Amino acid sequence: MAAKGLKGVEMPRQRSRYPDRYRRPARWIVATLFAISFTSTRLAQAEATQSREGGNVHITAERAMRGMLELIRKTSSVVELTPEAMGHRLGLPIRRVSADHFGYAQSLGGGWAVSIERQSTGDAGPRVDLIFSPIGEGHPAATPICTPDFSQFTQELERMGFKRQSSYGEHGRWTYDAFDRSGAHVAVYPLVAGGGAICVQMVLVR
Rank of each mutant, 00 (worst) to 15 (best):
K4L: 14
K7N: 07
E10S: 13
E10R: 03
E10C: 07
R13K: 12
R15D: 14
R15C: 11
R15T: 15
S16V: 03
R17E: 03
R21K: 11
R23M: 15
R23Q: 15
R24N: 05
R24G: 00
R24E: 11
A26I: 10
V30L: 09
V30K: 12
V30I: 12
T32E: 09
L33G: 02
L33H: 03
F34G: 09
I36L: 13
R42F: 01
A46M: 11
A46L: 06
A46R: 00
E47R: 08
A48R: 13
A48N: 07
S51H: 11
S51V: 15
G55K: 09
E62M: 13
R63W: 04
M65E: 07
M65A: 12
R66D: 13
G67K: 08
E70I: 01
L71H: 04
S77F: 06
V79G: 00
E80H: 13
L81Q: 12
L81W: 07
A85N: 05
M86S: 04
G87Q: 01
H88P: 00
G91P: 02
P93T: 06
A99P: 08
G103S: 10
A105Q: 04
Q106F: 00
Q106L: 04
L108N: 12
G109D: 00
G110E: 03
V114L: 09
S115D: 12
I116H: 05
E117T: 13
E117D: 15
E117N: 12
Q119W: 01
S120D: 12
T121V: 14
D123M: 06
D123Y: 11
A124F: 14
D129T: 10
F132G: 01
S133F: 05
P134Y: 11
I135F: 14
P140T: 08
A142T: 12
A142D: 01
C146F: 04
C146L: 03
T147P: 10
T147L: 15
P148C: 13
D149I: 00
Q152Y: 07
Q155H: 11
M160A: 01
M160Y: 14
G161W: 08
F162T: 02
K163S: 09
K163H: 10
R164E: 13
R164F: 13
Q165T: 11
S167C: 15
S167N: 15
G169C: 12
G169K: 08
E170K: 09
E170N: 08
G172P: 07
R173C: 11
Y176D: 10
A178N: 03
S182F: 15
A184E: 08
V186A: 09
Y189L: 02
P190Q: 02
L191K: 13
V192I: 09
V192H: 04
V192W: 00
A193K: 08
G195N: 08
I198A: 00
V200H: 10
M202C: 08
M202A: 14
L204V: 05
R206K: 12
R206M: 05
R206V: 06
